[in-house]
Nucleic acid binder design. Structure first.
Lengths: 156, 156
DNA sequence: CTTGACCTTCCCATCATGGGAATCCCTACC
DNA sequence: GGTAGGGATTCCCATGATGGGAAGGTCAAG
């Protein structure tokens, strides 16, 4: 299987397959004389694995770890679960953060007439910070340690 | 006010203030003879505005728009509301997506013994895709148009 | 005049992904 | 054999918002 066939078989773009090769995540089984990457079912399954893991929001770093556990028939499921749970906690935190943003925004939007007049509680909120009140702390409020520069939404 | 003072007054890092200058979002009122940026209360308020808008998850592009409306005393609140509502819909969609990931993951984690044995439903799911079942479609399921390469989590 | 804090610009890195160029290779067809 | 078209290769660049750091100029206090 060349890269195009592996791509169709796995649902991972050729570009990404090359990238996974580059970062050492999934190496082609071999190269042809013309330097074409060659893949077999094993690698294609790994590519599918990655695709699925990405769709669950795991980072490449986490996936590298998961993949090494997957390859290791003697892995303890404890380790897999640990990675999953850490990621889950991360997801939950980010969801809560975004939910707080959405809640604040919805409240502000509901108060906004949305007509031709310039008065707007949304702009008022952005302006003021509204020091006294429940308004100001959408995302920063909790006090969760450092400003997590967390990971983005992955693809499907 | 030089950039350091503006930074302290607004809560925006000097690095970011320079960036906002560079992209034309908030220009310093003037420069000193030594080429130092000079800011006054107006700009500091704009920086605070941006900081607050970022904390609500608005992108820089949306903030540029919001800022121009904010500066325009004759703006129709309709336009502000439109931006906010679009962002809100975006937030809701991303929350739903992450929630689906989290739900799937939680279910898988709950089924995982997390002990020394290698059997692991999490890895099994990643392996199989489990073609028949509610398991497979965490994030891609909905059918919402194109794979939105959406924006990341902002800071507080 | 020196020291230390602060400013300037410029470059690099993040993370996963896509776009595109230049070049080479393979297959099919005439 | 020649050629066309699709597909492979590598390399560079961009994203979005942010941080890190280097090299060099500036200001204020001692």
């Amino acid at each position: 299987m060349n890269i195009g066939q592996a791509s169709r078989a796995s649902g991972v773009t050729a570009k990404m397959i090359r990238y996974y090769d580059e970062i050492g995540l999934v190496r082609p089984g071999s190269r042809t004389e013309a330097n074409y990457r060659e893949y077999d079912e094993v690698q294609v399954n790994e590519l599918r694995f990655i695709r699925r893991a990405r769709s669950l929001g795991f980072s490449m770093e986490e996936i590298a770890h998961l993949l090494s556990l997957w390859r290791d028939r003697a892995r303890p499921s404890r380790e897999v679960k640990a990675i999953a749970d850490r990621h889950l906690a991360d997801l939950d935190a980010r969801i809560a953060e975004m939910q707080a943003m959405a809640d604040t925004l919805r409240r502000l939007s509901d108060c906004c007439a949305g007509d031709e007049r310039p008065d707007c509680p949304i702009l008022a909120d952005l302006t003021g910070g509204l020091e006294a009140g429940t308004t100001a702390s959408a995302a920063g409020g909790g006090g969760r340690s450092g400003r997590t520069p967390g990971r983005t939404r992955p693809i499907a």
